[in-house]
Design a protein around this nucleic acid. Structure first.
Lengths: 217, 217
DNA sequence: TAGATTGTTAATCGATTAACAATC
DNA sequence: TAGATTGTTAATCGATTAACAATC
């Protein structure tokens, strides 16, 4: 094993491995080779072995990988067993959908509270997660050990809230607003979820396909 | 200009350029150099010029780029002016949030119908988009010109619905289910939106940061 | 044992960065 | 004109793939 700054490309593949391994377990598959895993994920066996070798030796010659054990290793690498805690800011449409629908726990993260400005929401609770007034956000951050802020507020207040989060020492922001939040500073980790970026990439490939067809005709 | 299969990396940056250019327009900036744009996006000027040169010559020596004109070029490249049409399958939590909250039109896509199995939803309408019974899905596809299917059904039925979509010649699937939908076949374009992948990558970087701190102490 | 498959080193390929002539 | 900045060619860097000895 090496473990000297693993490339982002590798990191982005880890969750895919995890998901596939879960699927394999579900269908009763207990072991798998890099060749077979590659087939199922559209990757070369080489790349898969290279990826894993960044973190250790998880396989066995002549055998392959034990699905369950490999899964556990990757989960550990991804920090799923660290007990990270998150809060959600903005219980609008997307925020609400996340609370209702997204299983934070399944991915090793505890959603411990949500915040909003809307009176009718404050004091209520969703899936056991309490919703507090946004006024109490700073106070909450200072009295609880929170690593991740899920940002789901309207675009207009996104920057102000971000500043507040950073001022109170948040470590990471999971950004669902459609604002460019790259490097608000050097110490806060930002992960952007831009639906529109994703749709536009899709749109590009559909357009490209159209053009290809057009040329042939 | 070259235009011979542009790399995926480049395509993924285009929506970011678009977003930034919109922000610039909003704040009244009419021209920008690759240097300044690079600063704001955390990219090198070289990369930006290289990216654009895949599609044409959009700048002017000694001046830079006209923000509005460049925006229009990129929008065109991304297929935003092609009038793509989409349908949504699954009006659950996430599907509902998309209908309510996500402006398809803003990105050049028309959401023309939604489908669900839930009796109470069928026949109703959100933001002018009608919700039909999933039984009529195939019929609808055969009588309308639809390119994109937004897949927001429960995990358990995801594969069955996907098959149905492909059988009826859908061109692209925007996949919001947490299922690995890579290459269902070679002709359908799939764009995955996996929240969990994104959260896990975030989690990894928080864990890494923790370890770094641990070593220093 | 023979066959399979790993982990790793070396080779290739592709993407990013640097440099610079062209020109607004 | 002088200065700025493009588009592009060349150089560098990094990521993927191929190959293979080690070994279960």
């Amino acid at each position: 094993m090496k473990q000297g700054k693993v490339s982002n490309n590798v990191i982005r593949r880890l969750p895919r491995y995890l998901r596939k391994l879960d699927e394999l377990t579900e269908s009763g598959v207990g072991r798998i080779s890099s060749f077979e895993l590659g087939q199922q994920l559209g990757l070369t066996p080489s790349q898969i072995r290279q990826d894993f070798s960044n973190f250790g030796e998880f396989g066995q010659q002549g055998y392959g990988y034990n699905v369950e054990a490999l899964r556990a290793q990757i989960a550990g690498i991804l920090g799923m067993d660290r007990g990270f805690r998150a809060i959600l800011i903005g219980v609008g449409n997307i925020g609400h959908a996340l609370m209702d629908n997204f299983s934070f726990t399944e991915w090793g993260v505890e959603l411990s509270a949500a915040f909003d400005v809307k009176e009718s929401l404050i004091g209520s609770e969703f899936n056991g997660v309490p919703i507090y007034s946004e006024d109490s956000l700073e106070d909450y951050l200072n009295t609880h050990d929170i690593q991740i802020a899920v940002l789901a507020v309207p675009k207009t207040v996104a920057l102000a809230v971000t500043e507040k989060l950073i001022r109170n020492g948040i470590e990471a922001i999971w950004n669902f607003t459609n604002i460019e939040l790259t490097e608000p500073n050097s110490t806060t980790i930002v992960e952007n979820v831009h639906f529109s970026d994703s749709l536009l990439a899709l749109s590009y490939y559909v357009a490209e396909r159209q053009d290809e067809r057009g040329q042939k005709a």
